[in-house]
Design a protein around this nucleic acid. Structure first.
Ligand SMILES: [Mn+2]
Ligand SMILES: [Mn+2]
Ligand SMILES: [Mn+2]
Ligand SMILES: [Mn+2]
Lengths: 219, 219
DNA sequence: AAATAAGTTTAGACTTATCTTAATTTGCAA
DNA sequence: TTGCAAATTAAGATAAGTCTAAACTTATTT
C-alpha cells in the first residue's frame, strides 16, 4: 500500500494538474514544503510503482492508477469534511487539518458506509466536488452569481468575461476562482449584489459584473 | 507528542495492568508481537518521557501521565467503535481494526464533538466502559445473568461463586470474564437460561448457575 | 552456595522512510 | 551558443522501529 506521504504527494500532483500540463518538480516541492531534491527522490519511487509518468527534467503526470488513487484520497478528505461540518457541527474553516489525518484511514467499507450515512453528498463544505466510489467527479451545478438567491452560498468556478479590465477589477475586489461567496442582499433598483467573499470582506458588485461570474452553489 | 507505536505500547501496558501488579517485558512483547529486546528499547524511551515507572528487571507500571494518555486512547478507540456500530451500521465484530487506526487521530475537539454526537455513551459495542474526557471510568451497571431480559446482551464481568467446581464448569462451557452473552430464551418451568456465548455457541444453563454470573448489560 | 533456568537488558546493527546540502547535469530562451 | 534556472544525483543525516546475539539479573533447584 501507499504510505501517508506517498498519498500526499499523489494528491498534490493531482491538485497541481489543473490543465493537462505536466507538473513540475519545483511546484510540488512548494506545496509539499520540501526541497526539489526530496521531490525527485519521491518521483522516482512513485514512478517505479507506476503511479506517475515520469521523464526526467520534463515534469510528471499521474497514470490511470495514480489518478484513481488520488481521487480516492480526495474523496475521503471531502467526505470526512462533510461529516465534520454536517454531523459534528464544525465550522467549514476548522475541518481541513482533521480531514488531512482522516483521509489516510484505510478501509473501503468504512468510506462507503460514511458516504451513505452522509446521504451521498456531491460536494464538500467548501463547494468542492466529491468523486464517487469509482473516482468519477460529479458534474457541478453551475449558475451565474447574478442568479444566486439571497443568502445563497457558492464557490466561484470561472468567469464568462475574460478581458483584462474585468479580471483586474476582480483581482482588486479579491475575487478569484475558488473564492467562497455569499449573497448578502440584492438591490431591487439595479440588481446590484451585496457579497461576502471568503467569509470576510463585504462588497457590492453591479449586475453586469455578477452575470459574468460563474459559481457553483453550496447547499 | 506520542507516535502511534508509543500510544499502542502504552495502551498495551494499560490493558495488561489488570491488578496493580507490575507488567512484565515478555507480556508486552507477546501482545505487541515483537521481541523482548524491542520492548526493552521502548520501555527506556517511555521511561525517559516519564510515561512509565521503570526499574530494570522489575517490570513497569504507568505513571499518572501515562495512565491519562492510555485512557485517552482507549476512550477514542471505544467512541469510534460506537460510531461505527451505531451510525455506520457495522457489526460489533467488524469494528476493531478500523478503530485501531481511528484511535490515533489527534484532535481534542473532534473527540469531544464525537462524544456528544453519540450521546455520551458509557460503554462500547463490546460492553467495555468508555472513560470520560477526564479519564474517569464510568461505574458499570451490573446485574445477574439470571435477571437479564430475553434478547438482552451483556458482558460477563465476574462470578459470585468461586468454588473450583463452578469455575471448572464455566470453563467447560466456554464462559469467562469478558465473554459476550445473549439471552436467547428463558424456560418458564425452571428459569433455565438459553444463552449464546461470544456470538457462537448456544447452550442452556440452570437458574442456579445464571444467578452466580455477574454481567454488565450492553444497550 | 552453586547451578540452572527463565526473564530481561545491552550492544550493535539493520531497515524503511524521508530529508538535506552540495555538486552536477540538462533544457531552453535570449 | 551560451548562460541560467530547473532538475537530478551523490552522499549522507536523521528518526523510528526492529532484530540477533551476548551478557546480565533474579528466582528456583539441587
Ligand atoms: Mn480540505
Ligand atoms: Mn474541502
Ligand atoms: Mn476494539
Ligand atoms: Mn471494544
Amino acid at each position: 500500500m501507499l504510505t501517508n506521504t506517498e498519498e500526499n504527494y499523489i494528491k498534490a500532483i493531482y491538485h497541481l494538474s489543473v490543465d493537462n500540463k505536466t507538473v513540475r518538480t519545483n511546484a510540488i516541492s512548494e506545496v509539499m514544503n520540501t526541497t526539489a531534491a526530496s521531490v525527485s527522490d519521491m518521483l522516482k519511487k512513485l514512478s517505479d510503482k507506476s503511479y506517475i509518468h515520469y521523464e526526467k527534467y520534463q515534469g510528471v503526470s499521474l497514470t490511470k492508477k495514480g489518478k484513481t488513487e488520488a481521487l480516492q484520497v480526495v474523496r475521503k478528505h471531502r467526505l470526512w469534511e462533510v461529516f465534520l461540518v454536517e454531523k459534528l457541527r464544525f465550522n467549514w474553516d476548522e475541518v481541513h487539518e482533521i480531514a488531512e489525518q482522516l483521509e489516510h484511514i484505510q478501509s473501503k467499507l468504512l468510506i462507503e458506509r460514511l458516504d451513505d450515512f452522509l446521504g451521498n453528498p456531491t460536494s464538500d463544505p467548501h463547494g468542492d466536488p466529491i468523486p464517487n466510489a469509482k473516482g468519477e467527479m460529479p458534474v457541478l451545478r453551475q449558475v451565474l452569481l447574478s442568479e444566486l438567491d439571497v443568502n445563497g452560498k457558492a464557490k466561484v468556478i470561472g468567469m464568462k468575461e475574460h478581458s483584462p479590465a474585468f479580471l483586474q477589477y476582480l483581482d482588486k475586489l479579491g475575487i478569484s476562482i475558488g473564492s467562497a461567496v455569499k449573497v448578502m442582499d440584492r438591490v431591487l433598483f439595479d440588481a446590484s449584489v451585496e457579497l461576502k467573499v471568503n467569509d470576510k470582506k463585504t462588497m457590492v458588485v453591479s449586475h453586469e459584473v455578477a452575470k459574468n461570474i460563474l459559481v457553483s452553489p453550496i447547499d
